[in-house]
């Protein structure tokens, strides 16, 4: 198939960016979206032009490094699928595709489709962990955790940290990302002890980084490759309010 692309090109965060037109011939339906971009880049490099910079690593939907807006949708049209797992059979011969970076104040552009998501790291740094040193751990089976608890914690822990939730949110909120980590750790006895401190610190950090407030449009869950539930946000808010009450007391 033949695909027409309108790709966002931007030298760095200070420069102005714009869409540039490209055509890729010989696109195969079994190609992944990123392989289609590889094909374009190969052509560009051979012509001595700068290839389109984009982020990616594992190319199997688990590392969370890839992610672009495809026709305005984070990771493209297929539900629960990262950009690297999207294949060209989702498009038709002759389609025009708009490709843009994940845009948010807290995600400065590095180049073209690459953005800096270290703000998400800093949210985890502020409190997204269990305070246990190597060597302190008790015997693993000493605290039973029911099947249901473990599964529920897993559902939240499955977040791959790609930032699609932020890019899909009209307020650029990181509530789904942050809520998922808070829920994961809160649902397990090992993490519960620190919930109040954790939630207060993580929510504050989220605001410091310039992420917006959640206004419950639920767009984030729709675009999340791991289908992380917005209920995690509700839990975060609940725990946050609780932590404030406790501090006041």
């Amino acid at each position: 198939m033949k695909i027409y692309l309108k790709i966002w090109r931007q030298k760095d965060n200070l420069s102005k960016g714009s869409f540039k037109d490209y055509t890729v011939e010989d696109v195969n339906k079994d190609m992944s979206f990123l392989e289609m971009l590889d094909t374009l880049n190969l052509k560009l490099v051979k012509q001595g032009e700068r290839p389109v910079e984009f982020d990616h690593d594992c190319r199997e939907g688990i590392c969370g490094q890839c992610g672009v807006m495809i026709n305005g949708i984070a990771h493209g049209p297929l539900k629960n699928t990262t950009t690297c797992q999207l294949h060209m059979r989702s498009f038709k011969d002759g389609d025009t595709i708009y490709v843009e970076p994940f845009k948010a104040e807290a995600f400065p552009i590095v180049r073209d489709l690459k953005v800096d998501r270290s703000s998400l790291d800093r949210i985890i740094t502020s409190g997204g962990f269990v305070s246990v040193d190597t060597g302190q751990a008790p015997e693993a089976n000493s605290i039973p955790i029911t099947y249901e608890e473990a599964e529920a914690a897993f559902d939240a822990a499955a977040c791959i940290g790609c930032g699609a939730c932020v890019a899909s949110c009209k307020n650029s909120s990181a509530a789904l990302f942050t809520g998922a980590k808070i829920t994961h750790l809160e649902l397990l006895p090992q993490g519960q002890k620190e919930t109040h401190k954790r939630v207060a610190e993580m929510v504050e950090q989220m605001e410091k980084e310039g992420f917006g407030h959640c206004s419950n449009t639920e767009a984030c869950q729709v675009e999340c490759p791991e289908n992380i539930s917005v209920l995690n946000i509700a839990r975060m808010n609940f725990e946050y309010n609780k932590s404030k009450l406790l501090v006041k007391k």
Partner: peptide, 22 residues
Amino acid sequence: ASLIDQAIAQGVPFAREYGGYL
């Protein structure tokens, strides 16, 4: 064996039996 203890303490959600054991 210590690794499993360590991971559990960090909150790694390993698969469980219905009774709650690993």
